[in-house]
Design a protein around this nucleic acid. Sequence first.
DNA 1: GCATATTTGTCCGTATGTATA
DNA 2: CTATACATACGGACAAATATG
Lengths: 238, 238
Amino acid sequence: MTGGARTGAGPRPDRSSAAERAADELRRRITEGELTPQARLSEESLVDVLHVSRNTLREAFRLLTHEGLLVYRLNRGVFVPELDEDDLVDLYRLRRAIECDAVRTLRDLDETRLQPLRADVADGEASARRGDWRQVGTANMSFHRHLVGLAGSRRIDEVTARLLAELRLAFHIIDIPQELHEPNVARNRALVELLAAGDVAGAAAALEAYLLDSEARLLEALRERRAPSGGAAADADR
Amino acid sequence: MTGGARTGAGPRPDRSSAAERAADELRRRITEGELTPQARLSEESLVDVLHVSRNTLREAFRLLTHEGLLVYRLNRGVFVPELDEDDLVDLYRLRRAIECDAVRTLRDLDETRLQPLRADVADGEASARRGDWRQVGTANMSFHRHLVGLAGSRRIDEVTARLLAELRLAFHIIDIPQELHEPNVARNRALVELLAAGDVAGAAAALEAYLLDSEARLLEALRERRAPSGGAAADADR
DNA sequence: GCATATTTGTCCGTATGTATA
DNA sequence: CTATACATACGGACAAATATG
């Protein structure tokens, strides 16, 4: 028994490939912060952990690279990227373009289509009352995914999914300043009310201000973290 | 000599991986129409053509799948996708969101930054005079890539590159109705003039109308091609 | 600056499951 | 329903590039 599909442990191929399952596992470890930025992901060691062959693992790497959760360096291996201020600005620029346009061009809204958004808002409010800021962040991500989902565009959904995954990575770098998620709860509720009233233009404007403010607060937190003491030390790496 | 890096033909590894070079070659064949939609790309036969191993070929497939130039079907292989009306609408929706936002938020424009755009316009005009509609289309693609490039966002550039590659695929399906590219030349020149005058809002509005019109013309051409005779035959595949 | 060790990049051969004729 | 073809996945091997002492 030298080779073969699914040797040993795998009880069932589910309905996805081994590479996708390995990618799912790695994605979880990255977004949960188990794999920290700047860390190199050794092929040899991960083969033992994930119980897949090296070729399959490399396919999983490719998948995650396309999502922006890993970066390749030729003959150096794969790394968890460390997002800097420019990346955050870049992410929010694309995010504003996508989300605001999706909201601005909405048509034929009814209560049925708004229901997933209301559920996310309720989840966020309940989690905030419990002080579960991590879940507040998750509910917020789900809210925005559902929001752009109203546009009914497959490609916009894909871009948004990648965007939010990378943003989640940024949150982890900043160590989740938990209070930053709190104001989003009220803003999300306000957005739903505007949409329920049929004011898509007002909702788009509110969303833009919302995202600009969120970006500014994140940037501030990132800068504070980068320079906790007042030192003006310009890091010279890279 | 059983295995090893770059066995046989490869004279130099350039500065990219074998998978990227294979992807470049496949991308060329797809966008040039050599590989037609609905065609299955056999791993075994392409290994001989591209002189790479199956594993490397599969990595190239992953790259192109991410760009939308190939689609995976589990245990079926990879195929060149055939874009339908919905895909075209989807592509143009994302395109309007990205490009119009990029133009609308432009700041600090000067002649130096507009120079690549002017070069593309000049290329398009010269090609149109020669009747080289294929080059007109290429120059048009380059124009729009440079246009969004003014925003200076890496991720927006990536999304745009994928968008235009897919669109090129659509053009090939419709067999390049060459006259469709002709009106774009004048519109591109008008856009540059508006930008040179500093009227970003006017340019954004003109671009939106431009893209809406372009989408409508493409849709019409696609429908005509799909139903050349008046038959109302609903295709039942898929 | 050079020799060595580690790791990635690439390839081959082969077994197994799945879809289709 | 059986047979065939193919994609999927595995392990092993060597060459080249990088990191390390």
